[in-house]
């Protein structure tokens, strides 16, 4: 079962958050503390995983860093994907779901790219908190990503 969905931009601002706690009733929360705590955890764990291991292939490229995929917090698991541009996508589910990387990739490559990046009216950089443009408010993105997440077999 999927609990919530967050996007952070490269300046560590939460630019999108959605909770699916009650199944059908989707409520958009203004509770930014959850997002901040989640980001703090994510940031620390990302550092740890990068520090502890890296692949040493001799292909001439810089050693690619070890990437964090998911972490469990008590009875919940947060799945994590970071794009090359530093956008962070997080899906929070229960611990029985092993791997949501393809789902996160789909959310980024299809829904986010098509509706937010390719949209000329959407701001390039979302501004800091308490600003009308601090969150993604694109209707198509919200509707399509919600529909996609709710159509997943692991949603309920």
């Amino acid at each position: 079962m999927i609990h919530s969905f967050f996007i952070f931009d490269r300046h560590c601002n939460c630019i999108y958050s959605r909770e699916y706690t009650n199944g059908d009733a989707i409520n958009k929360t203004n509770d930014s503390d959850t997002a901040k705590l989640l980001f703090g955890i994510l940031y620390s764990l990302k550092n740890i995983s990068g520090k502890l291991a890296h692949t040493n292939d001799d292909s001439g490229f810089a050693p690619s860093n070890n990437t964090l995929k998911s972490f469990t917090l008590g009875t919940y698991r947060a799945h994590y994907l970071e794009s090359m541009t530093g956008l962070k996508f997080i899906l929070v589910s229960d611990t029985h779901i092993d791997n949501l990387q393809p789902v996160l990739w789909e959310l980024y490559s299809t829904h986010y790219l098509k509706n937010v990046v390719h949209n000329g009216l959407s701001p390039v950089e979302f501004l800091a908190e308490n600003d009308p443009y601090s969150k993604i408010s694109n209707h198509n993105f919200i509707v399509q990503s919600d529909a996609y997440i709710q159509s997943l077999p692991v949603y309920r």
Binding site: L45, A53, L73
Partner: peptide, 14 residues
């Protein structure tokens, strides 16, 4: 007892 339980990365699990 319900804090951080595990971390999964490409190269190790914790």
């Amino acid at each position: 007892k319900t804090g951080l339980g595990s971390i999964e990365t490409d190269l190790f699990n914790l």
